[in-house]
Design a protein around this nucleic acid. Structure first.
Ligand SMILES: [Mn+2]
Ligand SMILES: [Mn+2]
Ligand SMILES: [Zn+2]
Ligand SMILES: [Zn+2]
Lengths: 290, 290
DNA sequence: AAATCGGCATAGAAAATCTATGGTGAAGTG
DNA sequence: CACTTCACCATAGATTTTCTATGCCGATTT
């Protein structure tokens, strides 16, 4: 007997989330990455929201978007609201007994630092289901379903962060290659392996090794550090080694250091966690950071 | 060149909203009404959320659902988060210049109180687009896209509420019917029109009119008050009139009062607004409440 | 005993959302 | 100067999500 009228429809929650992420990150492309969709999807969501509202939230320019006054005035409230929503989801996951741990890590850290430690971790924490995702950039832990992230960071550690090790670099190579390099100048005569994402490493080290006389080294480039590392192990050249990643190989004699100069990059291998940290997660990060 | 890994998926925002509404309202059916979907849709959303979580949030019984300990412990945070989200949407709408006003009202109030006032309102506020939705129960103004609601309420007025008039009732009928009713006892001899949602009106009035000797009246029942009112105007019987709704008709002589007894129902015609109240909305409610 | 009330499951329909594509203008590069 | 890159746009079609419809169940009420 009751009337079932067409209630006025509110904006879609996904559209609000797209708006919030775009406002916070300063563009549709960045928001799309965080939301794990294409930029076109974000653009459409925001267009829907603007149509619903009857007013633009972003001013489009050919090199990006800028918030309108309306968008500027309201975006912060949405960030607060979605922060709180993320927190609530965190509590939900924290209290659920199924102990899922999801780790986001830089590909090189995932492969060269975390993977070697995983077997022991899984043995020590057999009740946890640990999954690892390699990402180029640190995820937003409040918004995305990760529990822990593992990246290099320059910033001073915040409340939810633990500095695991300082990032220090030095050249390494296979033992049989070491014989052919006795001075820094010899580096120009051998392939100097590089990682695509850490292009600057060689320059950073060389600036300290040869402050007065700049020299240039060349060599093949790999998109993944682990590939460059494999190349170095098999005698393919000299790699700029990151201490956290190559130390075990030096220990085992698979690689040897060239020269004694160790240069800190100013970054730290930093472990970051979501709030709240539930008991299972606490055990995990305690083991990882020890 | 970058790795595009399958990021762990979070729960859908719609599922979280369904959970929050169900927890707050105590059932899937009530949540479904607020969300404007079928109960089955809510049940599925919540099942998805529970599957994602790996743990139930509600304990199902044959006469409803009850929150589990996990649901109980986390629901409040979601209410807070969605409240904040609703507030943010409110600010968005408030600042958008397109002056849309959406009113939710009890069907009887929509038809018999608001509609007669609308032409003057639209004349006074030509820049506003005013839409009216008839609802049986007051909507949740923080969650739904209404700006104003108009219902009868017993509770003391809150911060966002204005009492417009006390709900007072007395029997009314067409002038030609009035001749046949001279005492309260005569009411048993004429059709006493009733509104399906306000069944108790006659009893409330009769208990005051005849405190010592209970009498019963009978007559046709209408699902909408405006239909009962039409029946009364065309001489179909005696209607229990609500002062706010019948006063103009008495003024115009289309209906006449029987007896002098006016009984307050303890309820008030109450106007409620969302926060924030933007200028256009302020003008609207000022005119309505005056 | 019958009606009512919340639930459940499921299939098919509908709607929302996303991807893919080809296009624009502005800025940077050799 | 061409050439490339970048961020965004529009649109069509695909995909995924969400919803409705239906028949069912057990408890409560009448
Ligand atoms: Mn490197
Ligand atoms: Mn009534
Ligand atoms: Zn918290
Ligand atoms: Zn506010």
């Amino acid at each position: 007997m009751s009337i079932q009228p067409p209630r006025p429809r509110g904006p879609s929650l996904n559209a609000l989330r797209a708006f919030e992420a775009s406002a916070r990150l300063g563009g549709f492309t960045a928001a799309a990455e965080e939301l794990n969709v294409t930029p076109g999807a974000v653009a459409q969501q925001i267009k829907n929201l603007e149509d619903w509202l009857g007013e633009p939230l972003f001013q489009r320019t050919s090199q990006g978007v800028r918030l309108t006054a309306l968008g500027e005035a309201t975006a912060g409230r949405f960030s607060d609201a979605f922060d709180q929503l993320g927190e609530a989801v965190g509590h939900l996951r924290a209290r659920a007994s199924t102990a899922q741990i999801s780790v986001a890590a830089l590909p090189s850290l995932a492969q060269c630092w975390l993977m070697p430690r995983l077997p022991a971790l899984r043995r020590a924490l057999p009740d946890l289901v640990i999954s690892v995702t390699a990402l180029e950039k640190p995820p937003n832990l409040i918004r995305e379903a990760f529990d822990v992230s593992l990246f290099f960071s320059e910033a001073a550690p915040g409340a939810d962060e633990i500095r695991i090790a300082e990032d220090r670099i030095y050249p390494v190579c296979a033992p049989e290659v070491a014989a052919s390099v006795s001075s820094v100048d010899d580096l120009t005569q051998v392939p100097c392996l590089r990682d695509g994402h850490w292009q600057a490493d060689w320059q950073v080290w060389l600036r300290r090794a040869m402050p007065d006389r700049p020299i240039a080294v060349t060599g093949p480039q790999y998109s993944l550090y682990s590939m460059a590392l494999d190349a170095a192990r098999s005698g393919g050249g000299v790699l700029m080694g990151h201490d956290s990643l190559v130390a075990p190989l030096i220990e085992r004699g698979e690689l040897v250091r060239l020269f004694d100069l160790t240069v800190p990059t100013g970054r730290w291998l930093t472990l970051r966690t979501t709030r709240p940290v539930h008991p299972a997660l606490k055990r995990f990060i305690d083991l990882l950071a020890s």
